[in-house]
Design a protein around this nucleic acid. Structure first.
Lengths: 336, 336
DNA sequence: TTGTAAGCGTTATCAC
DNA sequence: GTGATAACGCTTACAA
């Protein structure tokens, strides 16, 4: 990645510096700096500086500032899949809160890929970000460099096995239980489970929530009705097709992932099975397509935005110097 | 925004510098720099430097580098709505190409808001980005600062009225014509048009594509069937309700925006009207929900990803020093 | 090939 | 309250 030298940079006209502003305003550079950082400066000078600055189109050079102060007012947010509405809603939540405190958010898309994630983390590490919020691609994503450097890290939606950092989670198991129980209440008994690949924390938890309910009601372990697949709509479709091909197919399905839900519905539709007859209950953020989903389908949505907001709050506290031991905040799903 | 002083930064342990690496490797700092920038260094020294660097966990400080070189290998991408799949697909396209050339992409979400857009542009301007790709919130978005500074700018999906920069567009008018024509071919005659607010370039163009076809086939200007609303699903729903309440309602509708399409379908559904009877044709990216959309609905998708890829290619060329006059590239919609 | 040294534009530490 | 001045960590002439 780092092999080819940077493209020869085009000539960049210099931008006004603090020195030129100082000269024009008849003060020292230090005074200009003070004006821009809210320190005490006499009104007379302050005005002169502001005037000079706007005349010159002065814009503080953030590279210089970051170099000097070893910090910047930007938060890096690394999400796992930019095309998944759960993550974009989360991003929006982060941004709302961060912006309100004067922080900017830069978004990086790891695409669930360890390598890409690593690249972005390295890039951000080189930039003295104020903090990092991440939905880790794996539970062994390495954030030690950040911690060593004193940069706060908050993980969202998934936990980091080898790092003791703040985390924002949702109660996946309870969500899965609720969603599964709904199907039981509606009279279904052979409830299958379709969710993300084994080893994915959220998927594992949701699986176990489903299993809990099934064991309570069926008495036997319903593992033959458990299908784990790629957490995309294609994965959902394949999983559902597999289930329908079973000798004794299920009569309902709990889907533990938003996009997979779409795939499941698709598979059912092309098999000519209506969700009124065949129970479907989905745990995941489907707001973007809410009105396209047949009303017979139960959707249990996730508080993505709220999770983002919470993560931002946590990181702002850490940035402000909060030294308490790391916390895990579980955001409750809003009453439906 | 810039009023409150930065949160007092926590103490940051210093990270290894090029000097320490140099000392450990027994060379000069310049040599270390050369190793990391791919200049000729004897193998012996190069290895010593690499070894020392990894022992110290050295990571080049990008703020210092940017300060010195006045450029960085990151591209800023400002999109108008992170929750709209059109823009996220576009983002993905940009990223694919940029990453392949060793550039990182930071994503900013303007949320169609001029103020937020301005903040992000200013932020990025302070950071010596290599380039900026933007889907402007308005046609008068100010990018002059960039241009003055020699930073390449590419606009995507929308053009900038007051700046002569590279642009990547899609042929909205042709798309709208195709989509409308399809309805005519299916036998509909009173084809309405629902699209984004007046003044939005893409919406204006799509409107005129629809109008062209209608005038060709109907002979009268069908303005009473034109409804422009907020480019969200709520806007689509309201627009459709308005149309259905007309004394002589339309018998079909062309929708010039993806999310609005969902709203339109929703309104039709709750009015008990099936899209087999009432023609619906949508121009916009709906891939995320493709399988949930009734098959009777015609969807003409937009090459969002390809547009992103193209934009990235353009900006990389500019970064590399391409001095040709600005171009507008129109990306063709892929044959369906 | 390698080293020396002078900045890049800020902010922070002193004196005044 | 204000002004010199020395860093911050890197790149890059220029010398060697």
């Amino acid at each position: 990645m780092k092999d080819k030298p940077p493209v020869p940079s085009a000539h960049r006209p210099a931008r006004a510096t603090i020195y030129e502003v100082a000269t024009l305003a008849g003060v020292s550079p230090a005074t200009v700096s003070r004006v821009f950082n809210g320190f005490n400066v006499s009104a007379k000078y302050a005005n002169a500086v502001k005037k000079a600055a706007s005349e010159l189109g002065f814009r503080p050079n953030s590279a210089a500032r970051t170099l000097r102060t070893r910090t910047s007012e930007v938060i890096t947010l690394v999400i796992a899949d930019i095309e998944n509405p759960f993550f974009t809603a989360l991003a929006r939540g982060v941004e709302e809160v961060a912006r309100a405190s004067g922080y900017s958010v830069v978004l990086c898309n790891s695409d669930e890929d360890e390598e890409r994630e690593k690249t972005y983390l390295a890039m951000a590490a080189a930039q003295h970000m104020a903090g990092v919020i991440i939905t880790p691609a794996t539970d062994h994503t390495d954030v030690s460099e950040w911690l060593a450097h004193g940069t706060p890290v908050v993980s969202v939606d998934r936990t980091l096995a080898y790092a003791n950092v703040d985390a924002v989670m949702v109660d996946n198991q309870a969500g899965a239980r609720d969603a599964t129980r709904r199907l039981i209440e509606r009279g279904f008994r052979r409830v299958a489970c379709v969710t993300g690949p084994s080893g994915t924390e959220t998927a594992d938890e949701r699986t176990s929530g489903w299993r809990d309910v099934m064991l309570d009601h069926g008495g036997v372990t319903p593992e033959r009705y458990l299908v784990r697949a790629l957490a995309k709509d294609s994965g959902g479709r394949e999983a559902m097709e597999k289930l329908l091909a079973l000798p004794e197919p299920p009569d309902a399905v709990f889907v533990g992932q938003n996009l997979m839900g779409i795939g499941v519905l698709e598979a059912l539709a092309s098999a000519g099975i209506s969700p009124e007859k065949f129970g479907v209950s989905i745990l995941g953020d489907l707001s973007f397509a809410a009105t396209l989903i047949p009303p017979a389908v139960d959707v249990f949505s996730l508080p993505a935005r709220e999770m983002g907001r919470t993560a931002a709050q946590l990181i702002l506290e850490r940035i402000a110097g909060d030294k308490r031991p790391p916390r895990t905040v579980v955001v409750r799903r809003s009453a439906e």
